[in-house]
Amino acid sequence: MELSALLLQVLNGLDKGSAYALIALGLTLIFGTLGVVNFAHGALFMIGAFCSVTVQRLLSLSTVTLDETKTDFLGRPLEVKTPYVESWFGESVGQAMIDWSVPLAILLAIPVMLLIGFVMERGLIKHFYKRPHSDQILVTFGLAIVLQEIIKAYFGANQIPAPAPSMFIGSFDFGQLVGFDPGVLMYPYWRIVYFLFAMLVIAAVFAFLQFTTFGMVVRAGMADRETVGLLGINIDKRFTIMFGIAAAVAGLAGVMYTPINSPSYTFGMDFLVISFVVVVVGGMGSLGGAVLAGFVLGILESFASMREVIEFIPGINQVVIYLAAVLILLARPRGLLGRKGVMES
């Protein structure tokens, strides 16, 4: 096998791995701070994705004027749609805004997801700290169904495309960049953007936890919540904020994923199951483990879908993640980077 083919699989694994890593990171943040297993996290990812659909629709709201000088194919006067943004900001700026609706959706997604996170934590999750993990799983699972159905009732059951900005559509020759022949190693622009974006978000979360006083208190609270509380710090409030941040991370992952895969209301569930596998493989409560496992499993999945591998072991592409999870959990019961005593009875 050629080196370029291997490299291509690594690259292909990166975008899915990024999404896994971002969702798993949020799940781990919630688990590490509040000790809550959040099955609604996939739904948060899905809501994030629909933020970009919403922004796209808002930006394309148009006024319709009839152009009497031209006719359409039925002979009626041609309807000319002018989006409001074009009439407000001028044609070029308006068109650019519509074109860039997916990245612009980040601006909407952050406050929306923070708000949803706060409401969810204060309204529901707060009452489940002391309940068994199975109750938490069940109530958040119910919530996930409700959120899904609300989205379905409003946006319908079909996938809604939300394309990337036109400058990122298409592929570029990644192979030439690292010294292969031209045309050997093509890679879509947006996937690189997604990967870089994911790295940025992950770095931001880690920097926030590592280098700010707030983050330091949160980390202390993760290690020993009671003692931090006894020191006179309102740890509950900070944990609520962390829940909001975790929701925002999932939402951002969803916003930027829409050009790769058009969202529908089941979008989150598909990722949720695998993300839980990712969290457990990485080690419950370990942030680094979640990110590492996300990328490892994403790349593994992409390797397993190579033609040569499938010919050798049929069906491996369908099961590789679960198989890896089983093997890792049996060989390293606490996951890749898990600590002792987390989630063990």
Binding site: V37, H133, I137, V273, F276, V277, V280, M284, P314, G315, Q318, V319, I321, Y322, L323, A325, V326, L329, L330, P333, M343, E344, S345
Partner: peptide, 25 residues
């Protein structure tokens, strides 16, 4: 061999594998 959420995930993983294999290979 494992308990708690690890057990849940292991059973989930096995079931998903069975599903994927039954649907394809």
């Amino acid at each position: 061999r494992r308990s708690g959420i690890y057990f849940s995930i292991l059973t989930l993983a096995f079931a998903q594998m069975s599903f994927a294999l039954a649907a394809s290979v």
